[in-house]
Nucleic acid binder design. Structure first.
Length: 471
DNA sequence: TGAAATGTTGGGGCG
DNA sequence: ACGCCCCAACATTTC
């Protein structure tokens, strides 16, 4: 029998392994192995995963697959499964992540004598090892990377519009799968239920999100993408993270737009950043644990657990930072502009190791992927490739005033700031006694006092990071 | 996709 | 009319 091993590719369309499997066979098996080791205990993604599994099982069963859901280490489970079901051929799609590539190696080494393995295309536009500078070394700057990668991609691929098969509405559920998900994947405490009203996992929804965005939102993307109070970005990221839609499908949409303008290009650039992150992660796999620029290894990070906790909870006293963290808790997602502000605050204002932030985002984001998360954090910290220089420090007050002028975003997530005058919405500690009395606002009762003074924190960060540079 | 400090320019008030 | 000062607006440099 043939086996389609489902990894992070919960889709019917543009799924290389799935296209190949069972072409000649009647009975087809699909297997997803839930490896608990790969998720932190409190990972929000367990919720998305569970929902997308439930839907994907239905879609696969329509195609004649019998879907199995098992728990454990992928390698061990696969070995046993292949034996138990007398599998003759395995089909799966490649994942360009160092640990997954190791797993691939282990699997192919073990099975190669006894069965055939088909390894399909990954969820990247191309193999990261195919893109190199003329001198043979990997790119470390985004712009030249993307310029080169796009040409490479267009030359190597048929990028005419990918015809998407319609995904059926799924009304039924498989009780066995639902029970497994409930008992094995989802935590006992149902804290994740709040996501149900916000997100709709699944391939059908992913395609709808893309199409709606392309129809309605992209025409103002370059302007709106930076305003966190506006629905200006696609919010496709969790769908992409679970492979419900591919970069290739998105690129194909982009490529078939007749009059491309700055909005389209800015949007597709974000797919480029994802490619770049995975490019870096594959060429420099050590960055998962270590600073790409090793001089940062000498940096003395703060060990202030209290401030770290306050950052996580959104109690820093800087409205734009705290609003971002609240949005993250409530929705499992944070606006990109605010990701930059909050992460810069942790690394520069609090001088806490980026790994703390990386780990927290890993648990909290529904759209977490290892490439973007690692590279994003190293970029903000200045220790990554093409990174922000040490002196680039976001001012949380100014950023708020620039990108959340009327405080709509801040007020949405921090209702206790509702009556603060616009002028002071990003620095409520400056409110004068008379106004405070009038609106009934008391700083340490209704909101937090800033845990650090911006000016002092900025100067301390400059000194600390500057010393590092001269070492 | 940074912010703050410092430098330059030019208009207006004023003696 | 002129010189001086102030300061906003913009430009450049620095961190």
């Amino acid at each position: 029998m043939d086996l389609y091993w489902v990894r992070s590719d919960f889709r019917i369309n543009n799924n290389n392994a799935l296209e190949q499997v069972g072409k000649n066979r009647e009975k087809k098996l699909a297997l997803y192995i839930y490896n608990n080791e790969k998720f932190h205990k409190r990972s929000a993604q367990k919720w998305w995963l569970s929902q997308t599994i439930i839907k994907f099982e239905r879609a696969l069963s329509e195609l004649g697959f019998t879907f199995h859901l098992l728990k454990g280490d992928e390698y061990e489970v696969l070995k046993k499964f292949v034996k138990d079901y007398n599998i003759k051929q395995i089909y799966y799609n490649k994942i360009f992540e160092p640990k997954e590539l190791e797993l691939d190696k282990k699997i192919s080494k073990y099975f190669k004598l006894n069965l055939k393995i088909f390894v399909g295309k990954s969820n990247l536009l191309q193999n990261p090892f195919d893109v190199k500078k003329n001198d043979g070394t990997p790119f470390q700057v985004f712009t030249p990377f993307w310029k080169n990668a796009e040409i490479h991609y267009l030359n190597n691929n048929n990028v005419e519009k990918i015809k998407l098969k319609n995904i059926k509405n799924i009304n039924t559920k498989n009780k066995k799968i639902c029970d497994f998900v409930e008992n094995t994947i989802l935590p006992q405490k149902k804290w994740h239920e709040k996501f149900e009203n916000i997100w709709k996992p699944g391939e059908k929804q992913a395609i709808e999100v893309l199409e709606n965005f392309m129809d309605q939102n992209i025409s103002n993307y370059s302007k709106n993408r930076d305003i966190p109070s506006i629905f200006g970005t696609s919010k496709l990221s969790p769908h992409i993270a679970f492979g419900e839609i591919t970069s290739e499908t998105i690129y194909s949409y982009f490529n078939n737009i007749k009059n491309k303008n700055i909005n389209h290009r800015k949007f597709i650039n974000e797919i480029g950043w994802r490619e770049f992150s995975y490019h870096l992660l594959n060429h420099f796999p050590q960055i998962e644990e270590q600073n790409l620029r090793t001089q940062f290894d000498n940096f003395i990070w703060s060990n202030d657990k209290v401030k770290l906790e306050k950052w996580k909870k959104g109690e820093t006293g800087y409205p734009i930072v705290d609003a971002g963290m609240k949005e993250l808790h409530e929705t499992g997602w944070m606006h990109n502009r605010v990701r930059m502000i909050t992460s810069s605050f942790l690394v520069k204002h609090l001088r806490i190791n980026w790994k703390e932030g990386e780990s927290f985002f890993r648990d909290s984001l529904l759209d977490f992927n290892i490439g973007n998360n690692i590279c994003g954090w190293q970029w903000v910290s200045g220790c990554g490739a093409d990174a922000a220089p040490y002196f680039r420090i976001f001012n949380p007050i100014l950023q708020g005033e620039k990108f959340d002028k009327d405080g709509l975003y801040v007020k949405k997530w921090i209702p206790s700031l509702q009556s603060i005058p616009k002028k002071l919405i990003h620095k409520p500690w400056e409110i004068d006694n008379a106004t405070a009395k009038k609106i009934g606002f008391i700083l340490e009762r209704d909101y937090y006092k800033p845990i650090v003074d911006h000016k002092i924190a900025r100067n301390e960060a400059l000194t600390a990071f500057k010393n590092l540079k001269s070492k």
